[in-house]
Computed example of a mutant assay.
Amino acid sequence: MDKPEKRPFEEVYDEYYEKVFKSVYVRLLHMENTEDIVQDTFVKAMKAYDRYDPKVSSVYTWLCTIATNTLYDRFRKIDSDKIVSLEDYMEAGFEPGSADPELEKLTDGYARSAYVILSRLNDSERNLLSMRFGLEMSYKEMAEVLSSNEKAVGKKMERLLKKCRNIAG
């Protein structure tokens, strides 16, 4: 079997930046923090690109893993800085649905509805949606990242989409 060819990092960046951005934004619902996380993600990815093996995982999966770890690293840093109250998290800008000036810019009814739905989901639910619709990952790729199986991921997505429809009314 031929070894999958590794593309130049610049091509990977150009193709996946927007998808990774959307994926992270869906989880944070905060523009400035999303920009920071995505920037850190691609800096880490660029530094590690020589170690990326396309035989082991797709570039989607690899970038999603880096983005998720970067996001969790940021939350751990906040925790280690002794920010413990909900008010402190909101002040730090990491509480989903916190005062985000981007919501005020959303004039499209669908975008505002999506924002409201996402703000009512927990992090793992937003993570599933970001992988499926932000990064456009297959259930197989999602299962790989989540250390699960396709059937279980499919069931979780089915329940999650039902929950989203219920929130939307």
Rank of each mutant, 00 (worst) to 15 (best):
M1L: 08
M1V: 14
M1K: 14
K3R: 13
P4R: 13
P4D: 07
E5S: 09
E5H: 10
K6M: 07
V12H: 07
V12Q: 07
Y13R: 11
Y13K: 10
D14P: 03
E15A: 01
Y17F: 15
V20C: 04
V20D: 00
V20I: 06
F21D: 03
K22W: 08
K22C: 00
S23P: 00
S23A: 13
V24F: 01
V24D: 01
Y25C: 00
Y25E: 00
R27M: 10
R27H: 01
L28V: 10
L29R: 01
H30R: 14
M31Q: 10
E32S: 11
N33Q: 13
N33H: 11
T34E: 01
D36F: 14
V38Y: 01
V38I: 00
V38G: 03
Q39S: 06
Q39E: 05
Q39L: 01
D40Y: 04
T41S: 01
K44N: 00
A45C: 03
M46Y: 12
M46W: 09
K47V: 01
A48R: 15
Y49N: 05
Y49F: 10
Y49T: 06
P54M: 12
P54D: 11
K55R: 14
K55E: 15
V56H: 09
S57W: 01
S58V: 03
V59K: 01
V59A: 04
Y60M: 04
T61D: 00
A67K: 02
A67C: 07
T68Q: 11
N69D: 10
N69A: 07
L71M: 13
L71N: 03
Y72C: 03
R74M: 12
R74A: 15
F75V: 15
F75E: 09
I78S: 08
I78G: 06
S80T: 13
D81V: 09
D81I: 05
K82H: 14
I83Q: 08
I83L: 14
I83P: 04
V84T: 09
V84F: 06
S85E: 02
S85M: 06
L86I: 14
D88C: 10
G93I: 09
F94Y: 15
F94L: 15
E95C: 15
E95F: 12
G97Y: 14
G97C: 12
A99D: 13
A99K: 14
D100R: 10
D100V: 04
P101D: 13
E102S: 15
L103F: 12
T107V: 11
G109P: 05
R112G: 00
R112F: 08
R112E: 04
A114D: 09
Y115Q: 04
V116I: 15
L118C: 08
R120V: 10
R120A: 10
S124R: 01
E125K: 02
N127G: 03
L128G: 03
L128W: 04
L129F: 14
L129H: 08
M131S: 09
R132I: 06
L135F: 09
E136D: 08
S138M: 10
K140W: 00
K140Y: 03
E141M: 02
M142E: 01
E144K: 05
E144C: 00
S147G: 03
N149K: 13
K151H: 14
A152H: 06
V153Q: 04
K155W: 09
K156I: 08
E158A: 06
E158H: 12
L161P: 00
K162G: 00
K163W: 07
C164D: 07
C164W: 06
N166A: 10
N166C: 01
A168M: 12
G169C: 07
